[in-house]
Structures are given as structure tokens and as C-alpha cells.
């Protein structure tokens, strides 16, 4: 579901600001930080521009808006989206622990391995938290 036009205008300006900051400050700050600023800025700018375009398209064609709203709120589509997210997360957790083992095999720095293990643990903590939360709610 699309947000208000002002939201995308703001994120677009923030994106442009980050791109400019990354470009102008590249000599003064660490290259990797400038790269991160440029990357986040570009992503934000592109996403906002695309959403603004979609919003303008919907404003011109109310039928498209209605169709998009139905597609978004359709119960089968929602169930499919949730199922796909759950399945993807399930697969990704094994990739993360796999990355953990690879970092051990290639003798990577300890913090890299620990990060992979922590992300794997975080997945299970979040999983338990949401199971508990939804059991109380439903």
C-alpha cells in the first residue's frame, strides 16, 4: 500500500542529500562510509521516485488504484505473501549458519563467525517471540 506523496517527497530529498553528502565528502571521510552514503541515498532516491510515479499513475487512473488496493488486501495474496516470507526466512537461516561454518573453514576473524551465529540465534529468538505474541493475540 502506497503512503502519502509528502512521505515519498521527504525520502527523495533525504536520498538526494545522502548522495550529495557521499559525493562531496568522499575526500574528507572514509571511502567505505562515502560508499554507504551513496548506496543508501541512491536506493532511497530510486525507491521514492518509483513510488511517486506509481502514485501519479494511480491519481490519473482511479481504476488502477482500486485494482492495486484489491491486489494488496486480497486475502489469498496476503496468505501467499506471508507464506513466501516464512519459507524464505526458513531457507535463509540455513544459509546463515552455512556462512558461519564457511567463515570457520576459511579461518576468518572471530567477529565474522560470531556475527553469523548471532544472526542465526536472533532468527530463533524473534521466532519464539512472535510465536508467543501471536498465541496471545489469536
Amino acid at each position: 500500500m502506497l503512503r502519502k506523496k509528502s512521505f515519498y517527497m521527504t525520502t527523495m530529498i533525504v536520498g538526494a542529500f545522502l548522495i550529495a553528502a557521499g559525493f562531496l565528502l568522499k575526500e574528507m571521510i572514509d571511502k567505505s562510509i562515502a560508499g554507504v552514503l551513496f548506496g543508501i541515498g541512491s536506493g532511497l532516491f530510486g525507491m521514492s521516485a518509483a513510488n511517486l510515479y506509481m502514485k501519479a499513475l494511480e491519481d490519473k487512473n482511479p481504476d488502477i488504484r482500486k485494482k492495486n488496493e484489491i491486489e494488496q488486501s486480497d486475502e489469498r495474496n496476503t496468505a501467499i505473501r506471508y507464506r513466501a516470507k516464512a519459507k524464505s526466512a526458513d531457507i535463509i537461516q540455513w544459509f546463515i549458519i552455512g556462512i558461519g561454518y564457511i567463515t570457520i573453514l576459511i579461518d576468518a576473524t572471530l567477529w565474522v563467525t560470531l556475527t553469523a551465529v548471532l544472526v542465526f540465534a536472533l532468527y530463533h529468538v524473534l521466532n519464539a517471540y512472535f510465536v508467543n505474541k501471536f498465541q496471545k493475540e489469536m
Binding site: 484489491i70 491486489e71 488486501s73 486480497d74 486475502e75 489469498r76 495474496n77
Partner: peptide
């Protein structure tokens, strides 16, 4: 106010509605 695909899936018995 559902998608056409939902009607198709319901008719084919692939999806049980809420």
C-alpha cells in the same frame, strides 16, 4: 473486492476462503 485469481482458485478448490 478480491482478485480474479482468488475466484479462480476458489472454483478449482485450490484455496479455501476465510
Amino acid at each position: 473486492e478480491v482478485s480474479r485469481q482468488t475466484i479462480g482458485s476458489l472454483e478449482k478448490g485450490r484455496y479455501n476462503p476465510s
